[in-house]
């Protein structure tokens, strides 16, 4: 990890409220692995004391990019970032997805912009290909389909309003796949809202499939010092303790995650 003064190379609307920000950041881009994130200091965000964490979408040739959706003050301020702007970032952070034991038919499950690190993961897994489930509220929330198609992945799309792909939740499509392949032992990888992660994790645990979940929590420092972004994790001895999503995660195996309630 390192502090890097990155430079905006491009900043484009990719659909709906989603934008891709491409940064020149040779150190971070060179060291980045799928599932890791960068902690950005948003320029011109007056009165802000916290950085904003973003999963790495692409990292190659000294450049990295992130996909984000405008959801609040921080991301609103990000919209104003222009080519040539300097951005202070810390990265790459976190542990990333384990790629060694992906098996020969991995299943990726994405919700909204959670698809970004999974696209990076698919690149890293090549030549292995599998099936990716991309879910969202509506057609405008479905991103990165072309990335997976160009790498030869089977893409299954679901939207809650039925405006693209199958209507319903992405986990219903996952259920359908698992039912149709009773003898398969896929490794699952998921990134998206907590409800999705929890549902994918439950399916993984129930079927004894390994399921890697990339968690998202309110983050402070991003490097393990402040203890804000903690998640209850069950250790090998069965004891449950708070682990830091920023540096012990953000990727955890479903069987070790102790959900509340």
């Amino acid at each position: 990890m390192q502090i890097e003064q990155a430079k905006v190379k491009s900043h484009t609307l990719v659909g709906g409220d989603y934008r891709e920000l491409v940064l020149s950041a040779p150190h971070t881009a060179g060291a980045a692995r799928p599932g890791q994130f960068v902690h950005l200091r948003v320029p011109r965000l007056d009165g802000s004391v916290l950085r904003r964490p973003f999963s790495i979408y692409r990292a190659r040739d000294g450049q990295l990019s992130i996909l984000y959706k405008t959801v609040g003050r921080g991301t609103e301020a990000m919209e104003a970032m222009a080519v040539g702007d300097r951005v202070d970032l810390i990265g790459p952070l976190g542990n990333g997805f384990p790629v060694e034991a992906a098996g020969n038919s991995p299943l990726l499950v994405a919700g909204g912009y959670g698809v970004a690190p999974l696209s990076f993961l698919a690149e890293e897994l090549a030549p292995t290909r599998g099936t990716v489930f991309i879910g969202g509220g509506a057609a405008r929330d479905i991103l990165c389909v072309g990335d997976f198609e160009s790498m030869g992945w089977e893409v299954r799309i679901t939207t809650e309003d039925g405006s693209l792909g199958e209507q319903g939740l992405v986990t219903a499509a996952v259920d359908g796949w698992l039912a149709a392949h009773p003898d398969a032992t896929p490794v699952l990888y998921a990134c998206g809202p907590e409800g999705l992660l929890r549902a994918v994790g439950e399916r993984g645990v129930a079927a004894s499939h390994t399921a890697w979940l990339s968690l998202d929590k309110h983050m402070g420092c991003g490097i393990g010092a402040c203890l804000a972004c903690v998640q209850k994790i069950r250790g090998e001895d069965g004891s449950v303790a708070w682990k830091r999503v920023c540096c012990d995660g953000p990727v955890f195996e479903a069987a070790e995650v102790e959900w509340d309630g």
Binding site: L50, K217, G220, C226, L227, A228, V230
Partner: peptide
């Protein structure tokens, strides 16, 4: 000591609130 439940931190204008609870 385990500290408090999450969320433990929230940003406000000009600062942040924390309630880590001395984990």
């Amino acid at each position: 000591w385990g500290g408090n439940d999450v969320p433990r931190m929230v940003e406000v204008r000009g600062g942040l609130l924390n309630a880590i609870g001395l984990q």
